[in-house]
Design a protein around this nucleic acid. Sequence first.
RNA 1: GGCCCAUUGGUCAAGCGGUUAAGACACCGCCCUUUCACGGCGGCUACAGGGGUUCGAAUCCCCUAUGGGUCACCA
Length: 554
Amino acid sequence: MNQNKQLADLLFPHIEKTPDYYEAKYPQRQLPEGAKVTRFAPSPTGYLHTGALYAAMIPERLAHQSGGVFFLRIEDTDKKRELEGGVMEIINSLKSFDVVFDEGMTGENSENGIYGPYKQSERKEIYQAIAKVLVEKGLAYPCFCSEEDLNEIRAKQEESKQNPGYYGQYAKHRNASFDEVKAELEAGKGFVLRLKSPGKPENRIVIDDLIKGIVEMPENDQDIVLLKSDGIPTYHFAHAVDDHLMRTTHVIRGDEWLSSAPIHVQLFEMLGWEKPRFAHVSPVLKMDGTSKRKLSKRKDPEAAVSYYHEVGYPAESVREYLLNLINSNYEEWRMANPTAPNTEFAVDLSKMGTSGALFDLVKLTDISKDRVALMSADEVYDMTLQWAQQYDAELAEQMKSNEAYTRAILGIERGVEKPRKDIAKWSDVRGYLGYFYDSWFEEYTKEGYEFPGNLPNDDVIAVLDAYKNTYNKADDKDTWFERAKTAAEKLGFARDAKTYKKDKESYKGHIGDFMSVIRVAISGRKNTPDLYELLDIMGEERLKARFDKAIKSI
RNA sequence: GGCCCAUUGGUCAAGCGGUUAAGACACCGCCCUUUCACGGCGGCUACAGGGGUUCGAAUCCCCUAUGGGUCACCA
């Protein structure tokens, strides 16, 4: 016993503070009953991944909908993988999707909150203080094995078909005496600190996971590394220390951690700390040929969260979609509450799928169309412009130099009971209204016009000619249409589709075909918003010019 | 290989021992309509396979198959 104390001092001579000191420094949080304290704890190893956004939204919602605290902790214990500027990248990306923190890192080297530091590389002293006590209690010990030693052990184990690892009889430094340790140290050898695991694999432990349910696993018997040779903790140890001292109540993390949960449970128990609740989230998958795989940064553009900004999906739409993957009943809630902010939806872990969900851009698009359809013309204008200024300067230019015109176009069939759903992302806007701009119209027609099939050119010209003389800007919608129908009839078109269907032989087509000719001539496309409003906004002069241009092209 | 987890239509998924096995997206039809849309209606397709338990199984148990995760001084 005494020897353990001696050993602890030998190993950590500079550590003065005790766990009690930290317990006092980081008091229990005073929060209302049921409030959850959650965190997002990424490594700053690159840009934000869609899966990470997904994984961050869950604890964020859980904390905020329960009146709790959501904080950002940076796990930078692996210096080899760290990337410059990684912290800001994470913060800004999440913020752009309305995932905001109450506490934790706020910049590369700034933070707020009293449970810090929130960057693991700055918590070395804390980990070591806890580790020191573990040594004192005989629950941890230094190991001087080199990489080669470890490889040798593993080779032996593989040969005899035993579980690989550092445990039991293979843990050769486990019971080294104080003098032996001292000798190694004096010989200048570095060490890692290992847990003296009391676990036996024949014992089973039970984890009550909030998503996966009851999971039974063998107890951990590996003398896992607590502190690496540079004195920095491994994930396992850092997780236990941090989440305890930061008073995390719910650990929500990727399910790749589930299999090491026995280690974590054991650590909490050995340290005499109350365990947080665990929730292991399945990854977002992607269809690759006929099989599913994790969304991959290298292969899938949509894996980088920046993708959505680039193509211009509103952040709100992406949130909606992700929420939909998190809890599939989100959709029902949305139908019942079409205009409520999505933060009013209560995320429920028990309703999460236990297997990974497939990421589906088509569904995202659909959801986004619904969202955009509910926006006002001004909102669409502003958000598109903002997007275009960064990603489509030409469009931004057009919008600004034709502002009133553009706003009017965006207002067509918007704000009505059944709004159009043409726009899913801001990059769609260019195609949606590009032909309105005279300087772009050329582009739309340079391949020629696509008039409705099987209509002879003469008829097309006749339609255009007739219509040119019929159009009267002063007409209201009904008069306008009546006039068009009459003109159509004179040229041998049926007034309505029904009449045409009854007797196809007698007509060249029906009013729809007639209108199609006009639509194509004026827009170069077969699909546009309401013609009446469109013509009204374009104005008579433009209309006539475009008709002439079309006739000339035939 | 050991240990975990998963498997309901093309996709997301409800379902927790008795259901005609929801709904949404996609696709296909039809209808509405004064054009384009929106919308409405309908269709299409599913419990991975095999054994049990039970009066009764998508639901519970076992085996098999397939997919995923994990077995580092990485997180």
